[in-house]
């Protein structure tokens, strides 16, 4: 039995036993190479699940949909290691109760093979070491190094150009599991703290606010980067922020769910190089 069939029947079993009220997985998309999020509430619907190497979205973003978990019931979800990492971060930030999430874990190997990950509860997955050793693809590192080698003026120009494409659709925010604020600061409009205009200032305000809020929290799933309809290289922003946090605090987000959020906690030996 392939993993797709295995997970279809496991999802069906979870639903028919009543252990979970819903399973979030993937279904066929509008073209042969697309997959779309699929929500199954019955064992029959679970038969529509698809699981293959095209299932790259991080479905953990749906776990914090308004009201979904407020009844205390459990939800099943198909997650890759980056999704598991996201769940670790969400638990450590007290946004999820570990017992409410049943994980159908899988990994995509060599870009084509899908393997099941052992375990169902978040504590079953030890991804810490893997995450510590995770390196982005060479082209990302290369692009990041190119930007780091620029002068401050050149770098400003680079991001000004890139952010000038921004249409403020907030797709980056909406697909991000870490952007769970019920009211984002850009939507606070009495007064309007962050400009909704797509001029240079407004574009920087939005993109930098998001980058700052993700520092030490990003699961590197790449959802924002893929979602951006105007192809702003958001992965480079988040990669850099992750690097900063790691070098300052030796902290990698999402290693486990017991971590204390790095920017919301304090250690005696934290570096204080920024205090003059």
């Amino acid at each position: 039995m392939g993993i797709q069939e295995q997970y279809r029947s496991e999802a069906a079993a979870l639903l028919s036993s009543g252990e979970v009220k819903l399973v979030i997985g993937f279904g066929a998309g509008s073209t042969a190479d697309r997959r779309r999020p699929l929500f199954a509430r019955t064992p029959e619907e679970a038969q529509k699940f698809v699981l293959d190497a095209a299932c790259i979205a991080n479905l953990s973003t749906y776990l914090l949909a308004e009201g979904l978990l407020s009844d205390g019931k459990k939800v099943g979800v198909f997650l890759k290691p980056d999704g598991i990492r996201s769940v670790n971060i969400l638990i450590s930030e007290a946004q999820l109760k570990p017992e409410q999430v049943v994980i159908l874990g899988y990994a995509i190997e060599n870009g084509k093979d899908v393997a099941a990950l052992e375990g169902r509860n978040i504590s079953d997955f030890s991804i810490g070491e893997k995450i510590r050793n995770l390196t982005p693809p060479p082209h990302v590192i290369e692009a990041a190094e190119k930007i780091e080698a620029m002068s401050a003026e050149e770098r400003f120009e680079y991001w000004k150009e890139e952010f000038s494409k921004c249409i403020k659709c907030y797709a980056c925010r909406q697909v991000c599991p870490m952007c769970y604020c019920r009211r984002c600061i850009v939507d606070v409009n009495q007064p309007q703290w962050v400009s909704t205009s797509s001029h240079t200032l407004g574009n920087f305000e939005w993109n930098l606010v998001r980058a700052f809020h993700l520092a030490g929290r990003c699961a590197s799933c790449g959802a924002c980067d893929r979602a951006c309809p105007v192809n702003i290289p958001l992965r480079l922003v988040n990669y850099r922020m992750g690097k900063e946090v790691r070098s300052a605090f030796d902290y990698v987000a999402g290693e486990n769910s017991d971590q204390k959020p790095v920017l919301a906690s304090f250690k005696q030996d934290d570096p204080e190089t920024f205090i003059l």
């Binding site: 249409i167 659709c169 309809p229």
Partner: peptide, 21 residues
């Protein structure tokens, strides 16, 4: 499954809604 972003509206050749700021 709609995540509530505005990409479909902003990339639409006819969507025309605006806000005054």
């Amino acid at each position: 499954r709609c995540v509530g972003c505005g990409s479909c509206t902003f990339l639409c050749p006819t969507c025309h809604c605006f806000d005054i700021q």
